[in-house]
Lab assay of single mutants.
Amino acid sequence: MSIQHFRVALIPFFAAFCLPVFAHPETLVKVKDAEDQLGARVGYIELDLNSGKILESFRPEERFPMMSTFKVLLCGAVLSRVDAGQEQLGRRIHYSQNDLVEYSPVTEKHLTDGMTVRELCSAAITMSDNTAANLLLTTIGGPKELTAFLHNMGDHVTRLDRWEPELNEAIPNDERDTTMPAAMATTLRKLLTGELLTLASRQQLIDWMEADKVAGPLLRSALPAGWFIADKSGAGERGSRGIIAALGPDGKPSRIVVIYTTGSQATMDERNRQIAEIGASLIKHW
């Protein structure tokens, strides 16, 4: 067993022997301040990774656009098919120029040779490549099948209805392509620590998230040296922004954090800054 596999296998073990965790309302004060600064709703939840206990939450059962955070769930569904012998990570998928959609920095470079399922998941999570996500959605049967996968996990809230990039439209009061912070946090925890996926697939999923290259201005910008984070960000229309993450000190994750916002007129930089400040408060009061 590799060191990384050992780390993920012992996530519940280490967490069980940690000192009790206590909620700190100071972080919620910052979440509410972010709402004021952005002029928009902000949803927040913080779960203990081992027990699933909610440590703090704000608007945990209000719907927010998922945006690209759905790509972690998508690759979880792909990995479940791999575990069941219905898919192979090494299978190569070929596609054409007509398949390319807006923001496809990886797939646009491989029109000639195609990409493997493993490479597509890596591109979808680490670079948020939209064509990679659409190609992977095709392998599982489309958005409705991802929703069905989530329902089978016990998540009857999260739903995907459309493809990239239309799913980022974020129309107010439109339930399409949305989740709730509580539902997303619980589902992410199941994917990373539950028995739904094999140990190898859980490790692969967290490795992809740990290698995320496009979430630097968010929670990662607030992390002290030595902290662990595996995350996936999302951005959408109407001032929408979000991030889902597993993080913790001492090089291992111990909490799940989900943050979503929508309806702001603020710039992307300002949305990023507010999420980073929430992260800084979380870490300060850990």
Score class of each variant (00 low, 15 high):
residue 59 R to S: 14
residue 65 P to R: 05
residue 51 S to D: 11
residue 90 G to P: 13
residue 143 P to V: 09
residue 223 L to S: 05
residue 162 R to D: 06
residue 101 V to W: 03
residue 202 R to H: 05
residue 266 A to W: 03
residue 165 P to M: 15
residue 34 A to M: 05
residue 171 I to C: 15
residue 231 D to I: 14
residue 218 L to K: 04
residue 148 A to C: 10
residue 48 D to F: 05
residue 80 S to L: 15
residue 44 Y to H: 03
residue 51 S to K: 07
residue 277 E to G: 08
residue 257 V to W: 09
residue 272 N to F: 09
residue 49 L to G: 12
residue 269 D to C: 07
residue 210 E to R: 13
residue 241 R to M: 09
residue 85 G to V: 06
residue 126 T to D: 06
residue 242 G to Q: 11
residue 154 G to A: 11
residue 155 D to K: 01
residue 166 E to I: 10
residue 240 S to C: 14
residue 82 V to I: 13
residue 87 E to W: 04
residue 220 R to P: 12
residue 116 T to P: 12
residue 73 L to S: 09
residue 85 G to C: 04
residue 84 A to V: 07
residue 265 Q to H: 05
residue 30 K to W: 11
residue 94 H to T: 04
residue 57 S to L: 07
residue 117 V to G: 05
residue 233 S to W: 05
residue 44 Y to D: 00
residue 157 V to L: 06
residue 172 P to R: 06
residue 98 N to W: 10
residue 213 K to T: 03
residue 39 G to C: 04
residue 99 D to I: 02
residue 143 P to R: 04
residue 76 G to C: 10
residue 245 A to C: 11
residue 143 P to L: 10
residue 192 L to K: 04
residue 136 L to S: 08
residue 158 T to W: 01
residue 38 L to N: 13
residue 98 N to T: 08
residue 122 S to P: 09
residue 166 E to Q: 13
residue 36 D to V: 07
residue 77 A to K: 02
residue 260 Y to W: 04
residue 89 L to V: 09
residue 197 L to V: 02
residue 190 K to P: 08
residue 167 L to N: 07
residue 118 R to L: 10
residue 200 A to E: 06
residue 96 S to F: 07
residue 272 N to P: 04
residue 254 S to K: 02
residue 99 D to E: 04
residue 38 L to F: 06
residue 142 G to R: 09
residue 57 S to G: 04
residue 95 Y to H: 13
residue 204 Q to S: 05
residue 129 D to V: 00
residue 173 N to C: 11
residue 110 H to R: 13
residue 38 L to T: 10
residue 48 D to P: 04
residue 81 R to Y: 08
residue 63 R to P: 08
residue 30 K to G: 12
residue 251 G to A: 10
residue 201 S to Y: 11
residue 236 G to E: 14
residue 55 L to D: 11
residue 83 D to V: 03
residue 140 I to H: 08
residue 232 K to I: 00
residue 204 Q to W: 03
residue 255 R to H: 09
residue 199 L to K: 12
residue 55 L to W: 14
residue 228 F to L: 14
residue 182 A to P: 06
residue 87 E to A: 15
residue 89 L to K: 05
residue 204 Q to T: 05
residue 72 V to L: 08
residue 165 P to I: 02
residue 269 D to H: 06
residue 103 Y to Q: 04
residue 272 N to R: 14
residue 145 E to T: 12
residue 134 N to M: 03
residue 266 A to C: 07
residue 271 R to M: 14
residue 117 V to D: 01
residue 185 A to S: 08
residue 225 A to W: 14
residue 249 P to M: 12
residue 186 T to W: 03
residue 233 S to D: 00
residue 192 L to T: 13
residue 110 H to I: 04
residue 46 E to P: 00
residue 274 Q to N: 10
residue 135 L to Y: 03
residue 29 V to F: 06
residue 132 A to R: 00
residue 35 E to T: 09
residue 37 Q to M: 05
residue 59 R to H: 15
residue 41 R to K: 14
residue 254 S to W: 08
residue 71 K to A: 00
residue 122 S to G: 13
residue 66 M to R: 00
residue 62 E to M: 02
residue 159 R to W: 14
residue 75 C to T: 11
residue 174 D to I: 13
residue 211 A to T: 15
residue 217 P to L: 12
residue 204 Q to V: 08
residue 276 A to I: 03
residue 243 I to L: 15
residue 71 K to P: 00
residue 177 D to V: 00
residue 147 T to C: 02
residue 97 Q to H: 09
residue 40 A to L: 08
residue 139 T to Y: 12
residue 74 L to Q: 03
residue 92 R to L: 10
residue 240 S to F: 08
residue 175 E to N: 11
residue 108 E to D: 10
residue 198 T to V: 03
residue 166 E to V: 10
residue 102 E to W: 02
residue 219 L to F: 06
residue 221 S to C: 06
residue 45 I to P: 00
residue 219 L to P: 06
residue 163 W to P: 06
residue 222 A to I: 04
residue 144 K to N: 08
residue 167 L to S: 08
residue 152 N to Y: 07
residue 185 A to Q: 01
residue 111 L to W: 05
residue 228 F to I: 15
residue 264 S to M: 03
